[in-house]
């Protein structure tokens, strides 16, 4: 039997607003709850099989102290690693929410589960913060959220990040880690985000401010083949998987085993696709150096 309360529940959960270009000031959504990656007290290093104490790992920026393997880092933790303090970070466009434009089976359920698990609303967190006191616009893709893949929301938030940065004459740093590339569940609309973000990068470039693209493990497919490849500076963490086609697809196509080190950061550096490989503990100093070189 329907009660009065049930009737109230039928009202829409969201208010739909047409996106307006260059609109509105930042909104502070509920602070995402960062989760330790991976879970538990101990973690096994995929690089050297060592069992590592989670607290030690976290203190070491999630880099294995034995072999240097770089673990995935969540968006909030990454912000804490590169910014002066998370308190100076002001999130942008946290209210932009994902829909299921194709009615793709299971997408809403997977979204809800992922949001619950990660405490994130989408695969990217964008906003403005300070790095060595330089104000900087930042976007961080989180691998834990649909492999950091790009759908409509990621594309839109990136476009707005570059637009707002241009308006405010801020440099931009984007940290990518999206094995999924373009998000399959949003079909062709994901593909179109590649065009949208490439265009946003180019327009931002006319502001004369630098865009630093940081590639982390993995940066593949539609993410790599769009904004991530277009940085004025392209840095990569060591040992990250970087490329267009997935290694399994390449292997199946050429019907040969892949050479060792194929599609790693080191491979990308050797073949001239990136500027530098940067250890995680060096990332903040190198970013600061770039900002210093562009100081006005």
């Amino acid at each position: 039997m329907a009660t009065l309360k049930d009737l109230f529940r039928t009202k829409p959960k969201y208010v739909t607003v047409k996106p307006v270009q260059g609109e509105a000031g930042p909104v502070r959504p509920p602070a995402p709850k960062p989760k330790e990656v991976p879970d538990g007290l101990w973690a096994k290093c995929p690089g050297c099989q060592s069992i590592l104490y989670q607290r030690e790992l976290s203190k070491n920026l999630h880099v294995c102290s034995r072999c240097g393997h770089h673990f995935h880092v969540g968006a909030m933790e990454r912000l804490a690693q590169i910014l002066d303090s998370v308190e100076t970070f002001e999130e942008w466009d946290g209210e932009v929410a994902t829909v299921n434009p194709l009615g793709f089976p299971g997408y809403e359920e997977k979204l809800a589960r992922t949001q619950e698990k990660t405490g994130l609303r989408e695969a990217i967190v964008t906003g403005v913060g300070r790095l060595e006191n330089y104000p900087v616009a930042v976007g961080i893709l989180d691998f834990a959220f649909f492999s950091g893949s790009m759908g409509s929301v990621v594309g839109e938030k990136l476009a707005r990040l570059f637009e707002r940065a241009a308006e405010r004459c801020l440099p931009v740093i984007v940290v990518s880690g999206g094995g999924g590339g373009a998000r399959m569940q949003e079909g062709i609309l994901s593909l179109m985000q590649m065009a949208k973000t490439c265009q946003a990068v180019e327009r931002f470039g006319r502001s004369g401010r630098p865009y630093v693209s940081v590639l982390t493990n993995p940066t593949m497919g539609g993410v790599y083949a769009s904004f991530a490849s277009l940085g004025d500076y392209i840095l990569a963490e060591p040992g990250a998987l970087i490329g267009f086609a997935g290694p399994r697809i390449v292997e199946r196509t050429i019907r040969q085993p892949l050479p060792s080190g194929f599609q790693t950061s080191e491979f990308a550096l050797k073949h001239g696709m990136i500027d530098r490989i940067v250890q995680r503990k060096e990332l903040r100093p190198v970013l600061a150096q770039i900002l210093r070189l562009h100081a006005r």
Partner: peptide, 21 residues
């Protein structure tokens, strides 16, 4: 785009991004 070793070496991803831009 062809998924091969040389294609990746010569920057398949970068070329696609540059073309789009």
């Amino acid at each position: 785009a062809y998924p091969g070793i040389e294609a990746e070496q010569r920057g398949q991803g970068v070329v696609i991004a540059e073309n789009i831009r």
